[in-house]
Design a protein around this nucleic acid. Structure first.
Lengths: 339, 339
DNA sequence: ATTCCCCTTGACAGCGCTGTCCAATGCGCG
DNA sequence: CGCGCATTGGACAGCGCTGTCAAGGGGAAT
C-alpha cells in the first residue's frame, strides 16, 4: 500500500503554503507562473492526488455526478454512462449510478441518497426525466440536474435532447419516398416523453404527404421486444396488411421482424421495418435495421458538461439547453414498397 | 433547499453527545436501548442523513464500491450494476462505475482514481478480472477487490464465479442427447478467462461421448455479433456442415442465427444453435435462443457483500470465494438432429 | 520620492464526522 | 460498607482540504 501523500507533503516539497498548493490544484488565478511550476513538479514527483472526501467536505464541490435510470434498455444505459464518464474524467469527476425503481417508493430511494452524497448534479434519463417525484426531490434538496430527452415542462430545468419529432418525420418520409402508402406505427412507452413526439412526427409526415392513417394501423407498445411482437401480430394478422411498419424503438422493431419471420413475410421485399435508437440490437439481426441514430453518447457528455460548469440560470431566462443532431441510418430492413 | 441537518442537531434534539449519536448510527454496542431509541427518534424527526464525505474523511470507510468494466456487452454490465446496487443500498453504500479502456494506458486510468476516491473495494468484471496491471494497481494502493469470473490465478484474491466448464459440458451434452454428432464450436474472446473453460467443457463432453471434434469445426471468435457471424460463415460454407453450433456467448450465437437465416437454413430443424449468458438478446430473436443463464445479478451481489464486510483473508488461507449455480435454458433454437 | 493598489502568498478556522481516551455511573462481591 | 470491574456517555483532536481574511511586495501614478 502506497503511503498516503497529502497536500502538506506537496507544500513542504515545493516550499509554499498548503493554500498555494490548493490554488494551483484548483487553477485559481493570481499564482506566479514560477510558483505554479514548482508546485506542479512536486505534485508529479510525489504522485500526489487530492482526497475527494476532504475536498468535498471543505469545499462546495463534491466531484460527483449522479446518473439516475430506470430504463429497460441496457444499451441505452451504458451508452449514457460512457458518454458522461468521458467528459467527467477530464475534470476529475466521478459517476455514481443509481437505478431507480419507479414501481416502488421513489421518494424513499432518492431523498436519502441526495442528502448523504450531496452530488454536484445528476443526469436524468428517460423516463425519469419526466418523473415528478424525482424532479421535486432534486429541487427540494437543491441539487442541480439535467434532463435527457424530457417530454414536457421544458422550462423547468436544463435539458439535452434531440428532435424526436423531426426524426420520426424524416423516417416516415423515407418510407413514403420508397412508395409506401399504408404504414403501420407502434407507439412507445407512454411514460417516455419522446414517445409522443415520435408519434406526432409520424402523423405530421403522413398528413403532409396527404396519406391516410387508419385507426387500426397504430398500436400501443411499451418499448419492449414483446410489446413490439404483440403489436406486430395485430398489425399483420389477416390479409389486410400495411406494407411497412415503423416502430418507435429498435427493440419493438425487432419484435416486428420476428413476427414477419414467423409469418414468412420477407423483409424488406414484402414488408419494410424501421426502428429508432440504433441500439446494438439493430445490427444483431438480419436484415439489419433501418433506424435513427440517437446521439446518446454526446447527449450524456453535454449533460455532464453542463453540470460540471455549474448550470445556473438567471431568473426568468430559459434554461441553457441543447438540441443535438440525429442521423437517419438506412440499412436493409426498408425497401421499395411492393406493388 | 432543505436546511442541512448535522449530527449536532440530532445530539441536541435527543439530549446526548454527538459521539453517542455516532454510536447508534454505526450500530456500535454499549448504548442503552432507551438512549438508542431516543436518538433514532430524533434522527427520524429531523430527517437526518449523515454526510458521506465527512464520514469517510474521519473514519476508515468510504461507503463507496467501484465497478470496473471494459465489456462490450451492455446487458452484462447493467446486470452487474443492478446486482451490486441491490446489496449496497441496504448498507448505505454507493456505486462508482468506471469503464476502463484496456487498449489505452490502464495504469493511468486506475491509479489516480484509486488514490482520490479511496473506495472500500472494487468489483472487477471480465476481462478486467484477469488484467495484470489492474490487479497490481489495486494491490499497491491497498484497495480490496473481488473478481467476477476470473480465468486463472485463483488464489490471488477473492472471486465469485460459476462453473463455466460444467455449463458448457452440459450444453454440449444437451446437443448430443438431441442426436447431434457433428457439432461446431465458436471460442470466446481469448482475454476472458471463461472462454477457455467453456471451450474445455465442450471438448470434455465430446470426448466423454466418444465423439470426434474435427479441426475445422472449432473457430475463434471475440464475443461480438460480427465475430460470430464470420465464424458461422466459415463453419457453414460448403456442403459439409455441422448440424449444430455452440457459440460461447449469445451475441455470437445471434451472429450464427443471422448466417443461418441468410443461408435459408431453418433453425432448429436443419441447424441447432446454442448460446451462453442468457442476455436480453437471447429472447430478441426468433426462434429464441437456447442458452446458459449466468447468475450475473447474484454474482455481483455476492461480490458487493464480500467487499462491504471487508473481505480479509488470513495468511495462507484460500480467499473466501463463491461458486454460484448456472441454469440451462432450453428454448427453441435447438432441436433434434436432422437424419 | 511617496502614495495607492493590485498581485501573491500565507495563517487559520472550520466542513461533519469517527477514533481515542477518560469520566461517570451502576453493579456484584468480599 | 467499600472496592473493583463492566457499562455507558462525553470531550476532544484530528481526517485533508477550501474559504476567508489579512499581510507583504512591487509597480504605476502622482
Amino acid at each position: 500500500m502506497s503511503a498516503k501523500v497529502t497536500i502538506h507533503d506537496v507544500a513542504r516539497e515545493s516550499g509554499v503554503s498548503i493554500k498555494t498548493v490548493s490554488r494551483v490544484l484548483n487553477r485559481e488565478p493570481n499564482v506566479k507562473a514560477d510558483t505554479r511550476d514548482r508546485v506542479q513538479a512536486a505534485v508529479a514527483a510525489l504522485n500526489y492526488r487530492p482526497n475527494i472526501s476532504a475536498r468535498s467536505l471543505a469545499g462546495s464541490k463534491a466531484y460527483l455526478i449522479g446518473v439516475f435510470f430506470d430504463n429497460p434498455s441496457p444499451g441505452y444505459v451504458t451508452d449514457v454512462q460512457l458518454g458522461a464518464i468521458a467528459r467527467c474524467r477530464q475534470e476529475g469527476f466521478h459517476l455514481i449510478v443509481e437505478p431507480i425503481d419507479s414501481t416502488a417508493d421513489v421518494e424513499e430511494q432518492v431523498a436519502p441518497m441526495l442528502a448523504t452524497l450531496r452530488m454536484d448534479g445528476v443526469i436524468l434519463t428517460p423516463p425519469l426525466s419526466d418523473h415528478p417525484v424525482v424532479l421535486a426531490a432534486l429541487e427540494r434538496e437543491g441539487v442541480a440536474y439535467v434532463r435527457i430527452a424530457p417530454g414536457g415542462d421544458l422550462d423547468r430545468a436544463p435539458w439535452v435532447s434531440m428532435d424526436d419529432r423531426l426524426a420520426a418525420y424524416e423516417m416516415t418520409k423515407h418510407l413514403i419516398d420508397l412508395g409506401h402508402k399504408d404504414i403501420g406505427f407502434i407507439i412507445g412507452h407512454p411514460d417516455h416523453g419522446a414517445s409522443h413526439l415520435r408519434h406526432q412526427g409520424f402523423l405530421d409526415a403522413m398528413r403532409d404527404s396527404g396519406l391516410l392513417v387508419r385507426d387500426n394501423r397504430v398500436e400501443q407498445g411499451w418499448f419492449s421486444f414483446r410489446s413490439g411482437f404483440e403489436a406486430a401480430e395485430r398489425l399483420l394478422s389477416g390479409p389486410d396488411k400495411p406494407t411497412a411498419i415503423f416502430a418507435s424503438n429498435d427493440d419493438m422493431a425487432l419484435g416486428v421482424m420476428a413476427v414477419a419471420n414467423r409469418l414468412r413475410l420477407d423483409v424488406p421485399s414484402q414488408l419494410s421495418v424501421a426502428g429508432f435508437d440504433d441500439t446494438p440490437g439493430a445490427k444483431i439481426t438480419w436484415p439489419q435495421l433501418t433506424t435513427v441514430r440517437q446521439p446518446i453518447h454526446a447527449m450524456a457528455g453535454a449533460a455532464a458538461d453542463m453540470l460540471m460548469q455549474g448550470v445556473e440560470r438567471e431568473e426568468g431566462a430559459p434554461p441553457p439547453s441543447r438540441l443535438l443532431d440525429f442521423e437517419l441510418v438506412v440499412r436493409e430492413s426498408t425497401g421499395q414498397a411492393p406493388r
